[in-house]
């Protein structure tokens, strides 16, 4: 296993009312290929900000982020979009599915950014939906699906283009315990069987136990615990 992501002395601050507020300062960490990390911490500790920076939708104020030895934090907007499309799968708390598209069309979206043919795209969508056990809901629109099913569709969308890393921000925050465990079990399977690297932000200690490692972020510092 090699290092997939390296954060080196990363800081993030923003200005409010003319005053600079630091979220974290000089944060460093490494994410190994095949890791499943749960990032926990109190509200405002910067968990989601960290996840956003890992996913290239936010940038550090200082420091460097490298992905497979390539610096990514200083890429242009266009290059960053391509980086995200090739390497990152996103799983959101509120699923973020397109309400007018069927489950299959939602899952297909990332593949529209590739040069795959229509037939190849269909095949991949079918496989992804089978993986999340939603083949029979392929033509349903999100409003016809339960919360858990919607999150499964979102996971299928995140993995369909076979990205190296999945980023999940409170993926079970909107689900009941039983459904949450099913979703977390699915993520665990993706990590163990398919070797997907997963970084998950959660408030829920029960959710964090599905990960291989727990990182607690507080006052701009990490404290690591092993779990699973």
């Amino acid at each position: 296993m090699g290092v997939l992501v390296d954060l080196n002395g990363v800081s993030k601050s923003f200005k409010r009312g003319g005053q600079a507020i630091s979220i974290f300062d000089g944060l460093s960490m490494q994410i190994e290929d095949g890791d499943f990390i749960a990032i926990m911490g109190p509200s405002g500790s910067g968990k989601s900000t960290l996840l956003n920076m890992l996913g290239g939708i936010d940038r550090p104020s200082a420091g460097a982020i490298t992905f497979r030895d390539e610096r990514v934090d200083n890429k242009s907007e266009g290059a960053m979009a391509k980086f995200r499309a090739r390497n990152i799968g996103f799983i959101f708390q509120f699923y973020n599915l397109m309400p007018t598209l069927s489950a299959a069309r939602n899952v297909e979206l990332p593949l529209l950014l590739t040069k795959l043919s229509g037939g190849e795209r269909k095949k991949r969508v079918k496989t992804a939906l089978e993986l999340v056990q939603l083949s029979d809901r392929a033509h349903h629109k999100p409003r016809a699906l339960s919360g858990g099913q919607q999150q499964r569709v979102a996971i299928a969308r995140a993995i369909v283009s076979d990205p190296a890393m999945l980023l999940a921000d409170e993926p079970t925050g909107d689900l009941d315990r039983k459904t949450a465990d099913e979703i977390l079990g699915l993520m665990q399977t993706l990590n163990r069987s398919l070797g997907k690297t997963i970084v998950m932000v959660t408030h829920d200690p029960a959710a964090a136990r599905f990960a291989k490692r727990e990182l607690h972020l507080d006052k701009g510092r990490f404290e690591e615990r092993l779990s699973g």
Binding site: I57, E77, G78, A81, R84, A85, F92, P110, L113, R157
Partner: peptide
């Protein structure tokens, strides 16, 4: 949010 989601996935401006 839909637009931001698409752009997060990698769709261009």
């Amino acid at each position: 949010r839909e637009i931001a989601t698409l752009r997060t996935i990698g769709f261009g401006g």
